[in-house]
């Protein structure tokens, strides 16, 4: 009887080999997909969501047709978390870095996507909980609207936006088109 119990415990145990194989193959497939985008230069309608909050960093962003309004959205830890939606019509980003940290056992693994050349995006939809940057706006307007929908009561618009040395805690990202030349994906262990 004791032997049987032991046998059952052994079978239900964590298989490191299977875990690392599936994780590695997953990243390999994701890498191949992203590299194919990198080679072709253009990806269309790319949503990045469902991986919880991740960070977007860059040296400079220049965009036209900017709109901001508040919203409640899903994050990796909550179904309804306060966020801000940023819509930008045309964007050029220099030195873009997207990263997400995963806790695996006692270690922290960072999946990092970088672009060595300027990234061009059209139809950017970006939901963020926090934006830190040096910002410049042209024709900046902050206004209230008489609406029963709380999301429409306040909006910030600008014909041109420039963000420098920015870090954005991001929950959702969508682009109508993206041109990400010089893309690189790395998975590394960090402290």
């Amino acid at each position: 009887m004791e032997e049987r119990e032991q046998e059952v415990q052994v079978r239900s145990g964590f298989s490191k080999k299977a875990f690392w194989t599936s994780l590695a193959s997953g990243f390999l497939l994701l890498g191949l997909l992203l590299v194919s985008f990198g080679i072709s230069g253009v990806a269309c309608a790319v949503p990045i969501a469902g991986v919880g909050d991740f960070y977007v960093k860059f040296d400079q962003l220049e965009g036209t047709g900017y709109t901001f309004y508040p919203k409640l959205g899903e994050t990796s830890s909550s179904d309804s978390s306060p966020q801000g939606t940023n819509l930008i019509k045309d964007v050029t980003i220099k030195n873009l870095q997207l990263y997400k940290d995963f806790k695996v056992g006692g270690d922290t693994i960072r999946v990092l996507i970088t672009a060595s050349k300027p990234v061009r995006i059209t139809g950017l939809h970006h939901d963020a909980g926090l934006i830190q940057a040096n910002a410049k706006f042209q024709n900046l307007t902050l206004k209230e609207n008489n609406s029963s929908n709380w999301q429409k009561q306040f909006e910030q618009t600008s014909s041109k936006i420039t963000l420098e040395n920015a870090k954005l805690k991001t929950h959702y990202l969508f682009q109508e088109t993206i041109n990400m030349a010089g893309m690189k994906l790395t998975v590394e262990k960090i402290k």
Binding site: F68, S81, G84, L130, I131, N134, K136, F137, L140, T141
Partner: peptide
Amino acid sequence: VVHYMNAGGSNIEQLSLQTVD
């Protein structure tokens, strides 16, 4: 207490924009 704000040009250094509960 502001209800409308507009600026032709604006330069905001060390901006931090956050939405919280």
